[in-house]
Design a protein around this nucleic acid. Structure first.
Lengths: 197, 197
DNA sequence: AATAAGCTAGCACGGATGTGCTAAAAAGGG
DNA sequence: CCCTTTTTAGCACATCCGTGCTAGCTTATT
């Protein structure tokens, strides 16, 4: 048998290359050639692990979703362990902050998220994964608000989710105007206005 | 002299063709060939009115901005003419609703807006126009909130602007979940929560 | 050491894209 | 009627794209 290569680890590495290309030059530049170059592989090698160009993009989006989910769930554990109201408030803010481009890592992730999710509009094969992400975010926010005793949850979930999406979009597209401080202040204000009703 | 053609009217017609292509297939499909076909012209003809492919996209985005500005300003007139508080409330909701994909026309516009604005991240030549749009929206919302006597205007402008952006994004990307009714309800709730502080 | 299988690398194709350039067509002014 | 200039149309080139396909490389097992 040949060199032993964990195929799913390989796919993940290639997905990372996709992310770097997308972040720097946009999704439309994530061609097999560009991605292979970025990963330090030949086009043929990349194609050995992915059936399609489409397969590559779909896997990359799924990978992004998983990563996000994992990070947020870790925070959810901590939030559940909070005891005092102040602790809880901070835990919730931190949890939701994971969805915003507040530091370089999360900024990268938000840029990639925006690129994929908007591309899904005209790329049908990306839509299932995009919907999964959309729905997952609503479920999460629903739990947070539900435990907080917010009335009219469904509507408030939509309002908070849209606010977070909008903040993320502006944080990505106009980072010098929508700074992390601004995003944090807006989120804090919104959470305050929710609990003081 | 040859057939008399109003060059700026021609440019506008071609921009319309760009919009149709972008809406149907995404900005990355707005090639000179596709746009020329859509406009019923030859590639050479389109290039006679635009220096560049880039020039074409920049003009199209500027055209979109102008159109949006004109529509919103018309509403602003009406809002200023409102007398009763109820009338004013409704006028403000209508005004801000112009920025949401609430009907097919505005949905088309939002789709195109999202495509261009996200593309601007990795296409430097589109950024000036994108920033103009971003800033114009803040100015408008600032006036609306300022006249409404909302405290802490700067922060609330950012919050409302992000909410509107997020609603528009979700209305475009998940239209069957983020219906016009949902968007209207969220906006109404937000405006209520602002005035009852 | 020989074998077989996973893996890597790359050529070749048909098609699409932006752009430089040329040439025909069209039509108002002399 | 003819000229002049805008407008239209289209060819040609270099580049990039996804993909089908083949050949060589690598290495664990027999």
């Amino acid at each position: 048998m040949p060199k032993v290569v964990d195929p799913i680890a390989r796919r993940r590495e290639v997905a990372e290359a996709v992310f770097r290309v997308v972040r720097r030059h946009g999704l439309e530049q994530a061609s097999l050639r560009n991605v292979a170059d970025e990963a330090g592989l030949a086009v043929g090698s990349v194609r050995h692990y992915f059936a399609d160009h489409d397969d590559l993009l779909r896997f990359a989006l799924a990978e992004l979703t998983d990563r996000l989910e994992r990070r947020v769930l870790a925070h959810a554990e901590r939030a559940r362990a909070a005891t005092t109201p102040d602790e809880r408030r901070q835990a919730v803010a931190d949890l939701l902050g994971e969805l915003l481009p507040l530091d370089p890592d999360r900024r990268d992730e938000s840029e990639i998220w925006l690129a994929f999710v908007t591309a899904a509009r005209t790329r049908p094969t990306l839509q299932p994964e995009a919907r999964r992400l959309h729905a997952g975010m609503r479920v999460l926010i629903g739990k947070v608000l539900g435990e907080g005793g917010v009335p009219d949850v469904a509507l408030e979930v939509e309002r908070l989710a849209s606010l977070l999406d909008g903040l993320a979009v502006n944080g990505v597209l106009q980072p010098d105007l929508t700074t992390p401080d601004v995003m944090r202040a807006v989120l804090r204000r919104h959470l305050e206005s929710l609990s003081s009703r």
